[in-house]
């Protein structure tokens, strides 16, 4: 017998994947992000069409994702804000519903290892959201080409691919968080609420708190020295980076806007003699490498805690 086949992870993966696809929840999320994605690209496209004809059209295609057209926020800020919701809604009841339905005992009585269950569920969740994000990215890109009539350059394509991968990592992180919550809380509703609370805290309140703490440590007013203002900025930025949303924002701004050369505060002296220009892809990547690693690490830590917790958990 094929050892991998007998593990049952393939069967579990397929079943979970099919469950997601079939669920009404998935249809709702898909509808939501497709509407948001298309409308934000559409309105951004209109703005760019006018801009491109006047100015230089370097990286016009990338600007499609980052510019906000008219009253709608840009595509990336939509994804940055709503991405967590996608991850949370896919996972908040993934383990506790199995227990609530009484299927967990039956499932684990089959000749599979216990970690197969959590691995299969996690991989299926990541699979489904990758599918969602990749198709959305391609669809939106296609619409963009039609809208502005400028095909993307090779570098633009690479940058968009990295953007898609980053988005998958970002949403997987939130999926891992919700997986953990679905183990910690036996009630699906509690788990969903905890997830939403954390999401709101990290995407809205961390920024406020970071400002408060930074101002408390290094109060900035008219008389304060340059060093204090600099420290204030640094503390604020580091605290902000606790939030995955902030990390993601910084990373995609850098990757989608080659003009971004640095993410922290800069001295005027450092800018002296600098020639304004764009960064090559490899340099942009270098700038956000820590962000990527941190997001992957956060995902892994959440999954590892869930894994250990699930392995030690009593079945009833």
């Amino acid at each position: 017998m094929n050892p991998f086949k007998s593990m049952g992870i393939g069967v579990l993966y397929r079943k979970e994947f099919a469950d997601h696809l079939r669920s009404r929840r998935f249809s709702i999320i898909l509808f939501l992000i497709v509407v948001i994605g298309l409308s934000s690209i559409y309105s951004a496209g209109y703005g760019i069409r006018e801009a491109v004809s006047q100015e230089n059209n370097d990286f016009a295609f990338l600007r499609l994702f980052t510019t906000s057209g008219g009253s709608l926020p840009s595509f990336v800020s939509f994804i940055s804000f709503l991405g967590p919701l996608i991850g949370l809604s896919l996972g908040f009841d993934i383990m506790n519903s199995e227990r609530a339905r009484g299927t967990l005992g039956r499932l684990l009585a089959q000749p599979i290892y216990r970690d197969t269950v959590i691995n299969g569920k996690f991989l299926a969740g990541v699979g489904i959201l990758s599918l969602m994000i990749i198709s959305l990215g391609l669809g939106v890109g296609g619409l963009g080409i039609i809208m502005i009539g400028i095909p993307p350059t090779f570098e633009e394509i690479m940058r968009i691919l990295i953007f898609i991968i980053l988005t998958v990592i970002y949403i997987s992180l939130w999926f891992a968080v919700s997986l953990l919550f679905s183990l910690l809380f036996r009630q699906a509703a509690t788990s969903a609420l905890a997830g939403i609370a954390l999401w709101l805290f990290l995407s809205i309140f961390v920024g406020l708190l970071a400002g408060l703490i930074a101002d408390g440590l290094y109060p900035v007013d008219d008389q304060s020295t340059f060093e204090v203002a600099f420290e204030n900025q640094k503390v604020k930025q580091y605290l902000n980076r606790i939030s995955p949303s902030k990390l993601y924002d910084e990373a995609i701004v850098t990757i989608l806007n080659p003009g971004v050369r640095t993410l922290g505060p800069v001295f005027t002296s450092q800018l002296e003699g600098a020639i304004p220009g764009v960064l090559p892809l490899s340099q942009s990547m270098l700038l956000i490498w820590p962000h990527i690693v941190t997001m992957i690490a956060m995902t892994m830590i959440c999954f590892a805690i869930s894994y250990i917790y699930f392995m030690k958990q009593e079945i009833r």
Binding site: G8, K15, R101, G102, T103, Q110, P111, I112
Partner: peptide
């Protein structure tokens, strides 16, 4: 057969059994 045995309500009886058969290779 656990007490209060549970099944996936949105799958048919046959699909539920097929799943378990799959897990048993």
């Amino acid at each position: 057969l656990p007490d209060n045995v549970g099944f996936y309500d949105d799958l048919t009886g046959r699909e539920n059994l097929r799943y378990i058969a799959g897990l048993n290779s």
